[in-house]
Structure formats: C-alpha cells, structure tokens
Design a protein around this nucleic acid. Structure first.
Lengths: 139, 139
DNA sequence: CCTTGACTTGAACCGCGGTTCAAGTCGCAA
DNA sequence: TTGCGACTTGAACCGCGGTTCAAGTCAAGG
C-alpha cells in the first residue's frame, strides 16, 4: 500500500475545498484537520461563513503528513520539517539523524518480519522458545 | 543497532535476579517491569521479602518484548504472540497478517528515508515543494 | 422569517504506555 | 531494636494524538 490510497489523489485546481471534502478525500476526520491546524501543521485558506475552506494543495500536504505519521514521526517533528528552508542547517542535521534512525527502524522491522514469518509456520512449543525465532531477533 | 544494546545480553544462569538487576540489564525502568507483569507479558519467579525475583530467562523475553515494542507492536498484541502455541491457528493467521503489515511499514519507511535523505541536501525553497521530495513520497 | 443541518468553538474525555507519588513493608547492618 | 534504604502497592498523573460533547453560528431553502 502506498501513502495515498490509490497512489495519487485527484486534485481539482480552480476550486476551493470544504472541510468535509478534504476529510473525505484524505480519509482524515474533520476533527483531525482542526487538530492539525491548531498544531500548526496545516492552514485553512479562509472561511465561508464559519466554515473553513482549503486550497487544493493541502491534499498533497496531508498526504505527506499522513505518510510521515504512519512512519512514526511525531506531529512536532513533522511541523519542524514542513517549515524547513534549505538554509536551516539545524533542521537539515535533524533530517540526517532521522535518516539514520529510519535505517535502524527498517532493520528492526525486517528482523521482526523474519521471525514472525518463521513463527507463523514453526512447530515449536512454545513458539517463543524456538531457537530460530529467537536467533533472528537477537541479530 | 540491534534490539539488544550489544547484540547479546550476558545471562548468568544459576542465579535468580533482583528487579533492579533486570532493570539495569534491560534498560527498562522497574516501573515498566511491574507494568508488564500486570499486563501479563512477564512473570516474576518469586519474592525475596516483598521484592520480585526473576529467572534469568526473562532477560531474553524482555529483549524480545523490547524489540517488538520498538517495531510498533502493542502490548496486547505481544501478549497474544508470546502465549501462542503451534496449534493456535488464529494466532498464526494474525502473525501472517502482521508479516504483511510489516512489509507495508518497511516500504513506507524506505520511502520516507529516501525523501528525507534527499531533503537534507536539497536546495529547494521551501523544501516541501521540491518535486523530487514529493514524488518519492507519493510512491 | 424561520427552520434545518453542517459547521464552529473550547473543554472534557479517551486509550496507550508508562511514571510518579504516598504510604506501607521488608532485609540487613549497626 | 532500631534504623536505613530499597523495594511494595494502588492510585493519580503524564504526553501523545486525537474524538466527543454541548452550546453557538452561519447559509440556504421553503
């Protein structure tokens, strides 16, 4: 699965979006959109009465936010990265750190995957004590 | 980095362990050990006065628990898996599902890594708008 | 004009994964 | 035997990432 459901969200330019439309297109609850706005991840472009309106680009932004969230980034971290400029050395450094962390995470997930894959078909009793299972985890 | 700090925890058999020793060797807080026990992930072997004592094998178990936690498994899920027997078809199926989920997670992390790697050195302003950055995330 | 219905707000609440706290209890050394 | 210090307990609290709720406000349609 990709970060977006179909690999690409259809974005109709020209038209400003209602919060309900954004919610539906991104799969996020309206409450989540308001929450993100309060946290500084997201901006609504204006109001129609009380109702928030959004420029179509927020869909891309939300796609990115969704992906980062699912990759384990905190909201604070995402905000830092979204606000980054090329000149911001500190954020760049943080990004490089994150790359290293992601490498570790990926390796860990791969080990877990391997062990679990084995466990799902292993006749050991109890499963946890299977030497191959344990060995894969201990690296 | 491995799941264990040095890739292998030294386990002295023969001796039963104090909670403080277990905490130190695993890097977990004593409060976390009690918490895990309450949740059914862990058993203490007995008491010395009020003090919990642990068999050395819990170190392996905790190593496994640590690894699974960091891989994003919930405590409830870990408990299910730890209690599994080879005959338990439901748990096996759940494990197989988890393998598939892990595949997705791994793919997502790899995309994030890629984008972030690029972003950390990209002269685009603002970074978020860099086409290469976005493209990597949208799959 | 008045209703309807979807939004608005702030505040309260939720589950998760623990940590912290107050009060109590034990082993051990002096 | 009397401390001391490290543990014990349950309960309260924490940050995170939201959701839910009550009360209010708006635009549009009849």
């Amino acid at each position: 699965m990709s970060c977006s459901k179909n690999g690409k969200i259809a974005i109709s330019l020209e038209r400003v979006l209602d919060i309900a439309e954004v919610a539906e297109k991104t799969g996020l609850a309206p409450s989540a959109l308001r929450f993100y706005e309060k946290k500084g991840l997201l901006a609504s472009s204006g109001r129609n009465g009380l109702r928030r309106t959004y420029e179509p680009e927020v869909l891309h932004r939300l796609e990115l936010i969704n992906c980062a969230r699912r990759a384990g980034f905190s909201i604070a971290e995402i905000r830092r990265f979204l606000g980054a400029t090329p000149a911001d050395a500190a954020v760049r450094a943080r990004m490089a750190e994150k790359v290293a962390e992601l490498d570790e995470d990926i390796a860990r997930l791969q080990r877990m995957r391997h062990s679990l894959q084995h466990a799902s078909a292993c006749p050991h009793e109890p499963l946890v004590e299977c030497p191959e299972f344990k060995q894969a985890l201990a690296t």
